[in-house]
């Protein structure tokens, strides 16, 4: 019955010869040029987004590795153990390179455009705040973070400067690069990057407090030996907890905020429980025993 087409008036259309080659899927018409322009714009956006997401995923993974390395530390001290410092440095160098590749793509208007593809920055903030806490027992401020971020991007853009120390041939290279330094793009952290990074920091502090207390028998913190009343991580956690409780909830993402705040509350309570345990029966407790707090690491020895 079928086998020939009809036109709109119902007249059969005759087909001569063999079946014509299939028509090109895309018909050209008066709108085609406009859509081609729009396609190019969309493609640019999609390609850029893709590149950012790829780098972001890698930065997230590297940041997590830094955090894992830092969790192997047992006490708060300006000087990190050598092997851990070395690992942190390598990871940061890798992050530098990745940041430098995406930095030009997230300037100006594009910073917020791709904010959701840049979740890695939150993770990086978490790693950097944790590193800062383990060294100084203080919370890093956004003002302190910003030069660190600038430095990371700068190192990624001009890696030869580090090489120059070992490679004599490169000695001349840094001079022309100096002039370019002004153009090095910045990676700005948004307030949300910072705050959500710090929210996650409380979780890391809880894990650190649990492990270090269990394995060393002392509550982390306390600074120098001479301090009269050394501040412990329990107090730091309380302070961070109150800090977040007192902040007004941003109207942008109430749901996420409440979720993170709840997790922070739990972390604070886990650490205060640790403090209590240590006060009440700290001396009786055999070394290596870990209270069952859910988030704790496995003891190293049975």
């Amino acid at each position: 019955m079928s086998g020939f087409k009809r036109d709109w008036n119902g007249n059969a259309k005759k087909r001569e010869g063999p079946k014509p080659p299939p028509k090109k899927a895309v018909v050209q018409n008066q709108f085609t040029p406009m859509f081609e322009t729009l396609r190019d714009e969309l493609d640019q956006h999609h390609d850029r987004r893709e590149r950012i997401i790829k780098a972001s995923r890698d930065i997230t993974a590297l940041s997590k590795k830094i955090i894992f390395a830092l969790q192997r530390i047992r006490k708060i001290d300006e000087e990190l153990p050598k092997n851990i410092q070395a690992e942190v440095d390598t990871r940061l160098a890798d992050i530098s390179k990745l940041l430098a590749t995406i930095a030009p793509e997230i300037q100006g208007i594009n910073r917020y455009r791709y904010a959701r593809s840049l979740m890695c920055l939150e993770e990086l903030v978490e790693a950097l705040t944790f590193l800062h806490y383990l060294k100084t027992q203080t919370l890093i401020t956004p003002e302190q973070l910003s030069p660190i971020m600038d430095e990371l991007v700068r190192k990624g853009v001009t890696p030869s400067e580090d090489v120059a120390m070992t490679d004599v041939n490169e000695a001349a290279a840094p001079i022309p690069e100096r002039s370019e330094e002004k153009e090095i793009p910045r990676v700005d952290l948004t307030q949300d990057d910072y705050l959500y990074g710090v929210f996650d920091l409380t979780g890391e502090m809880m894990r650190f407090a649990t492990t270090s207390t269990a394995l060393t028998g002392t509550m982390a913190g306390g600074g120098a030996e001479g301090d009269e009343q050394p501040r412990t991580i329990v107090e730091d956690m309380h302070e961070l907890g109150s800090f977040f409780e007192m902040l007004p909830v941003g109207s942008g993402n109430k749901f996420q905020w409440e979720k993170k705040l709840e997790v922070t509350r739990q972390s604070v309570q886990k650490v205060e429980r640790l403090g209590y345990d240590r006060t009440i029966r700290g001396s009786e407790r055999p070394k290596g025993w870990i209270p069952d707090l859910g988030g704790g690491d496995q003891p190293e020895e049975e």
């Binding site: 401020t141 501040r231 800090f243």
Partner: peptide
Amino acid sequence: MPPMIDPTLFDQIK
């Protein structure tokens, strides 16, 4: 010993 949280930070973020 410096405080855990910079005293100006809260107001700034708030």
